[in-house]
């Protein structure tokens, strides 16, 4: 059939001239920025709303959900009474609002950690106390955790986390796994950044509490030295939950110099 021929196919009808990386970067930046703005606005809203939740309700929440995990390791001893007394004295110094109570739990586990959670519960592990040389460093831990509770940080974190998960689920619709993964990364970094601000605020209050209680903040920096050794340095401050150890130590030292805060260190009592 000589009257027919197959024409040469013109190239580039379906192949875009644009470099694929350029498209990706534009998309990633645009969508990333949009998600960040929405997340930021809504989590800000959620945080402020979370603060309005009465402490009584937070206590009930904690009683239902969180506070049941660690009871078997709790010790009822002289040492626990000593810890509770210390916590109560420090709480009094901080002037907690009406109805806000602190419950301190001592756990006889070899974990170098202490944390505050919903309902005014503070957990301190023996592993951390073992590494602290004097009461002043221990008081810094407890005052720091009390400050978190005073600032309502646990419930704020919960409100923020719930909002973030909800928004990400909305955005990704559940079936686009890849987009979900990508957006998840943004959410993670934002959440960590927020926590750092709360940590810094709690540090400031804790130092003020120690200054009022002991008349000086000597020995407070030991806590961060211990934590720093335990974790090893985190490579990027932006990605770590707790602010860089060195900057926290520097903050303690500058506070001490401002307030002329040198004084006698108080020893820890005997415990097991």
């Amino acid at each position: 059939m000589p009257e027919y021929e197959n024409p040469e196919v013109p190239e580039g009808i379906n192949v875009s001239e644009e470099h694929p990386l350029k498209e990706f970067i534009l998309l990633a930046c645009g969508i990333g920025a949009a998600v960040a703005v929405v997340l930021f606005a809504l989590t800000l809203l959620a945080q402020n709303a979370a603060k309005a939740i009465p402490f009584e309700m937070e206590k009930k929440l904690a009683a239902n959900a969180i506070f049941s995990a660690d009871t078997e390791n709790l010790k009822s001893s002289e040492f626990e009474k000593y810890l509770s007394t210390l916590a109560n004295k420090l709480a009094k110094q901080q002037g907690l609002p009406e109805g806000m109570t602190i419950t301190l739990h001592y756990s006889n586990q070899n974990i170098v950690n202490a944390f505050a959670t919903l309902g005014g519960h503070i957990f301190v592990y023996r592993g951390l106390i073992d590494k602290l040389p004097h009461e002043n460093a221990l008081a810094m831990v407890i005052a720091h955790e009390i400050a978190h509770i005073r600032h309502r940080d646990p419930i704020i974190a919960m409100g923020r986390g719930a909002t973030m998960m909800l928004i990400l689920a909305l955005f990704t619709g559940g079936d686009s796994a890849v987009a979900q993964q990508f957006l998840g990364q943004i959410g993670l970094v934002t959440a960590l950044n927020f926590n750092r601000e709360q940590e810094l605020a709690a540090d400031v209050v804790a130092l003020e509490t120690l200054q009022a209680y002991y008349g000086h903040v000597n020995g407070a920096e030991v806590l961060f030295e211990v934590l720093g050794e335990e974790e090893g340095e985190v490579p990027l401050a932006f990605l770590s939950t707790h602010p860089m150890t060195q900057s926290r130590i520097d903050h303690v030292i500058s506070f001490r110099d401002e307030h002329d805060g040198r004084g006698e260190l108080t020893p820890l009592p005997e415990y097991q």
């Binding site: 379906n14 192949v15 875009s16 644009e18 694929p20 498209e23 990706f24 998309l27 990633a28 645009g30 969508i31 955005f171 686009s176 890849v178 987009a179 990508f182």
Partner: peptide, 19 residues
């Protein structure tokens, strides 16, 4: 797939799948 996944959020030509 990532580029196309992001594109589905805003709409438009899925150039990465066209080729």
């Amino acid at each position: 797939q990532i580029v196309a996944g992001l594109k589905t959020l805003v709409g438009g030509r899925l150039t990465s799948y066209e080729s």
